[in-house]
Design a protein around this nucleic acid. Sequence first.
DNA 1: GAAAACCAGTTTCATTTTGCAATCAGTTGT
DNA 2: ACAACTGATTGCAAAATGAAACTGGTTTTC
Lengths: 168, 168
Amino acid sequence: MDQHRSGCPINLTLEILGDGWSLIVIRDVMFGNRRHFRELLGQSEEGIASNILSARLKRLLAEGLLVKHPDPTHRQKSIYSLTEAAIQLVPLLVQMGAWGRRHTPVSRELSIRAQLLEEGGAQMSADFMDELRHIHLGAPAPEKSVLAGLQDAYLRVVAGQTDVGTTS
Amino acid sequence: MDQHRSGCPINLTLEILGDGWSLIVIRDVMFGNRRHFRELLGQSEEGIASNILSARLKRLLAEGLLVKHPDPTHRQKSIYSLTEAAIQLVPLLVQMGAWGRRHTPVSRELSIRAQLLEEGGAQMSADFMDELRHIHLGAPAPEKSVLAGLQDAYLRVVAGQTDVGTTS
DNA sequence: GAAAACCAGTTTCATTTTGCAATCAGTTGT
DNA sequence: ACAACTGATTGCAAAATGAAACTGGTTTTC
């Protein structure tokens, strides 16, 4: 947090998230529920290097988008959690997914979640954010799990079924 | 366009726009209606360097987010226009502005546009996109100009009036 | 209780990208 | 002819990235 290029909200958001990896990390914590260093390192589609992941986690902690807690089951492990600021990135990520689905060569398996979130509209995003507040901030659990529904749809697509999301 | 890291829509969007300057350039073309190299170079709040601007314009042309036309008034000048793909970034930029306004130290003058677009909702974004299609793609002109409204509000804030956007 | 596997990073080093200032050649106005 | 302006390019130092090996510690396995 030295000096800012300008006070424009788009610029300031870009100064925090405007690189190739920060939002990937947040995406994996948010949608993949990856909470440890090794989970983020190994199970990522994109294959982030350990030094880059380390640097990004450090920066996201400093920027207040993530919080680190010790893991009771393993003295060396830390559990990374989203903060409210990161949870409020949901609509932005939904828009990124929607744009990517329309203008880039996405794969079907990896875009089904984006499709469902786009079709689910603001209500679904709000429900998802409530669920994230439960998972990461300890808020009361919502009745239904958006995340489970997204994961179900993903697994169905991976399994080869193609009639997902067609609101017939 | 060599190899992609993954087929995830968020990742693919990040591969195109995940740097500190690309969205700044698009923002200036979109909201500031800067259409020439020099306009983008000199009148930007953030002070982009000429080699970076040159590289970014080249990449945005290659990615299909901008299009370049010769300027009839000057043989060396080019007019940069947004493509439909870039115009569809409006909701994303609105979300970036909304998040930035909530979680970064924005300045009042530079965030009034973001505030109005956020308050205007999906309808205002759609109207704005129609206006951009008129300006950049030659589509028929809409009745009312969103851009003029945003600029008005900006100038009112700069002039010192503080009762803008308070939906009393 | 020793060995193996796992953990969160760090170190090293080559390559690439940025940031900044100076420069460039072509174009236009005077 | 000449100065100002056009969209860039060049040179160079600093920073960021990427891949792999490595570290110090922890837990599991045999």
